[in-house]
Design a protein around this nucleic acid. Sequence first.
DNA 1: GAAATACGATAACAAATGTTAATAGATTTT
DNA 2: AAAATCTATTAACATTTGTTATCGTATTTC
Lengths: 188, 188
Amino acid sequence: MKAIQAVMQEMIDISEEEVGQFLKGVEVKSFKRQETLSTAERIPNEIFFINKGIIRVFITDREGVEHTVHFALERQFIADYSNFILQQPSCYTLQAIEDSEVIVLPRTTIEWGYRNLKEGQKMGRLVAEFYFIYQDNRIKNSYIRTPKERYDSITEIFPNIHNRVPQHMIASYLGITPIHLSRLKKQV
Amino acid sequence: MKAIQAVMQEMIDISEEEVGQFLKGVEVKSFKRQETLSTAERIPNEIFFINKGIIRVFITDREGVEHTVHFALERQFIADYSNFILQQPSCYTLQAIEDSEVIVLPRTTIEWGYRNLKEGQKMGRLVAEFYFIYQDNRIKNSYIRTPKERYDSITEIFPNIHNRVPQHMIASYLGITPIHLSRLKKQV
DNA sequence: GAAATACGATAACAAATGTTAATAGATTTT
DNA sequence: AAAATCTATTAACATTTGTTATCGTATTTC
């Protein structure tokens, strides 16, 4: 529980007491490599915080092909946040790439935080803003960067990714085929 | 000021009195077609709310080519929100496509709202969440939809866009050349 | 109203990216 | 330890998308 507490305290003004209360409403869970934290079609009623491991977020298209949309690392929150907010069935599957330990924050706990933490709403705002900025960067880069450039700078966003994730998942994240990524890597 | 008041009241619990106070800190401005509301390289210290007109957001790449990243319509907020938050120089230029009227919300007013509106932080959260969901949808679609499919459904996101925006800007938004969009339109 | 500019379509060709198939080395499972 | 699966590379070919150039029309500017 050390990590999530530190992250919360970096974001907002919150007392030990308050954090303690808030964290009574969470649960720690472990997942083996390849296991699924959350499946598509199901309404996501929790947000995960990653203590250890790495989580892949993917969407499955009509042909059944999986597209990796995101990787989530230690000390980060992860969910189908859109459909958590909208309370609609998820589009994404969350899967552990390594044996992972996560903190599960149920909707009831999040809402409790909004109501009862002195700066609960602010924390919600900062989290949403943080992920907005991440997405804005992705969208921006999709317009002005080539796939090769985005590959070359991927460790800025996902440090050490090359040692933790197979290359074909990185290709999928970049929106290209693994064959094409192999080709691009040969370029200078 | 009717429109922004309505939007705020739809989002949060806010009294007429509070709205009135908040709106003392804003300013109405008009821009002619083609005029620039906000330029790249400058730190964005305000958020715009569109009363009338349509605003194009674009980024200029190293070769000087403009890439349309977004269209903002009536009753919407628009800014380089990332760099507004980060207080860093903007990447985007905001340009009026039609003669437009906007409400300018300076940073000082936004911050006043966070501090003094009963649900100011919540409003910030809801706005950030709203744009997060919009972006998430874009990213999702970039993985599972073809440019043709995204073209065909563009009016779901930007109603009446075809009557208000030249086609080459739509092509730019879709990340393809206008020549290619012409080709795609011929497909069934 | 004339001149200039912007706009959209099309053709021909070039470049980027996808598809299929084969291979060899890792890694995981049994 | 053997078998099965996963992984990354490469080649050959197909498809998609971009580039350059041209044309006719609409729209804007003077």
